[in-house]
Write a protein that binds this DNA or RNA. Structure first.
Ligand SMILES: [Mn+2]
Ligand SMILES: [Mn+2]
Ligand SMILES: [Zn+2]
Ligand SMILES: [Zn+2]
Lengths: 137, 137
DNA sequence: CAAACAATGAAAAAACTTCTCATTATTATT
DNA sequence: AATAATAATGAGAAGTTTTTTCATTGTTTG
């Protein structure tokens, strides 16, 4: 988990990029939308445009320092790439998001792709359900 | 695979609903967007509004006669519910979509949800990669 | 510190989907 | 077959999320 070096990624070191990165680092366990990040910037008194937030997030995604997810919400959410891959399970009642990794599933995915002649690049797996807290209500 | 009875689903039997259904039935193996369906209607000389296509698709989804998918494209695609569940593998080069089912993955998903205290309702699994045809180019 | 060029903010536009509302169609009931 | 009750429709406006445009500003290199 070394510090992220924008210069090494071919990105100029600008205030907007550093600020967005700081917000993502400060919210490691969260899954933030572009709007969330934009609002956080405004609250910190930073003068960054929403278009820039979108641009920077796309660049970070291409540089593989963060992951974009499409939960069943209509907008993208982002989280810093924490090294080890993980998948997500979401509560359809309260929106809670938990993370998991399963080696059996990962292995089967690779096997299936191979069987079907695909060279797999990535995957997205989301489980939806009702969390234990919401079941009790 | 009995004929779909709109009346039994609590939906009035209207021309737009029948036409949309016909297009979906005629394209069982495809994954069509609302726009695709709208264009197909126009080409058949049908006078159906795009808003109606969206409305009807949402109603069909709620009636559980079709499934909505969010591939990495920015818009929803739909396919008639063919009884047995399946997941998807997509080519990032040419857009080809193939289908598969894996009992091991299905079982692990249920087990994971249970372990994490969730009552699972559904899931979405998409594998992305390069198909065999595109690898040869 | 100057030149070269990349990044930015603001606003417009694009892409997709939903909403509003006046009109029309369907259904159940005569 | 006509009626009344009500649900569905088409057109366009509007809502959401994201991208593009472009004049201005900032970063980097030498
Ligand atoms: Mn996560
Ligand atoms: Mn399918
Ligand atoms: Zn919950
Ligand atoms: Zn391909």
């Amino acid at each position: 988990m070394g510090k992220i070096d924008l210069k090494k990624l071919g990105l100029k070191v600008t205030l907007p990029r550093l600020k967005v990165l700081a917000i993502l680092e400060r919210n490691q366990r969260e899954h933030l939308s572009a709007e969330d990040i934009y609002k956080a910037l405004l609250e910190s008194g930073e003068d960054v445009g929403l278009a820039t937030v979108y641009r920077v997030l796309t660049q970070f995604e291409q540089a593989d320092i963060l992951n974009r997810h499409h939960f069943a919400e209509g907008h993208s959410v982002f989280e810093l790439n924490q090294g080890e891959h993980h998948d997500h399970i979401l509560c359809v009642k309260c929106g809670e998001v938990d993370e998991f990794t399963d080696e059996v599933i990962e292995a089967r995915q690779d096997a299936i792709a191979k069987e079907m002649g695909f060279e797999i690049t990535h995957h997205s797996l989301y489980l939806y359900g009702i969390c234990s807290a919401c079941q009790k209500k």
